[in-house]
Design a protein around this nucleic acid. Structure first.
Lengths: 149, 149
DNA sequence: CGGGATCCTACGTGATACTG
DNA sequence: CAGTATCACGTAGGATCCCG
């Protein structure tokens, strides 16, 4: 198997207002009711999209089905193992569909599920923000780094 | 200092189409031109929002200024160090503003900058998606985990 | 209260080799 | 081609102590 236990994060959020304020309300209101990260949608879902790879893979898959190695090339910089792990995770979460063609050599195609596709739009919003404000961020960094030691 | 080197990721994306397809176009088109992660807006920005903390902190800050320990409690589960590191990162990126009141005991307030605020909306889109589809994701996981060994 | 400095460990990650 | 298995490393992150 490839990395069994995902990490048994089990802190005590009993007093935490994890899903914070206005958005907390939007999300459904947590705080005292949330027992673990899994109970907080924001965390649960974002923890997965958190790792750059998942995000990039979904983005790439938004263009249509792709084969493993093609995907690997297009994403770029991802190791075979991480791509596999990432795809398994996305598949597990029902965002990606994996199809194996019993040919030789084997052919495996990955594509977004309906659920996965519904995620593309919100992700695009963030991506667009990134594109639009990339310069501002870089400028801010430069400024910050040129300050006192 | 707190964690100097951010991580010298310097792979060779020369052939990679990092910002993928349709969104790649939207983003500005990379591929052969991109030399490092820093050149890809999606990666550059998302790598920061990637870690759950940044995302959650910004979300919380969207409700208004907060003091350090208050923020720590509200986010929940974050260690003092990580909150500090996270806030420094956000400050560096120009998303968060840090104000120190020279009182005793010290009082430090964090609030979103204009740039930070502009990020709230796209983040909300993702958050809303998470809230809406959390059940589907959990269901998918349960299904996946009950399959063949 | 806010946070800097240290120490220490787990696990994420890449490189490599093997299979069908 | 599409993985799986193994190993070895780095660093992200938690715990702690202390200072202004």
């Amino acid at each position: 198997m490839v990395d069994a236990a995902p990490a048994p994060i089990e802190a005590d959020w009993s007093e935490a207002d994890n899903c914070a304020g206005a958005l907390g309300a939007l999300v459904g209101g947590f705080g005292a009711s949330a027992r673990s990260a899994a109970d907080c949608p924001v965390r649960d879902v974002l923890d997965r999209l958190g790792d750059a790879w998942s995000f990039l893979v979904v983005l790439r898959l938004a263009d249509g089905p792709v084969r493993f190695n093609e995907l690997k090339r297009q994403v770029g910089g991802v190791s075979q193992r991480m791509l596999t792990v990432t795809l398994r995770g996305l598949e597990r979460d029902g965002l990606v569909d994996r199809t194996v063609f019993p040919t030789t050599p084997p052919r495996v195609e990955y594509r977004l599920t309906a659920l996965g596709n519904s995620l593309v739009e919100p992700m695009t919003a963030l991506t667009r923000w990134a594109a639009t404000n990339h310069d501002s961020v870089r400028a801010a960094r430069a400024r910050y780094d040129t300050l006192p030691a």
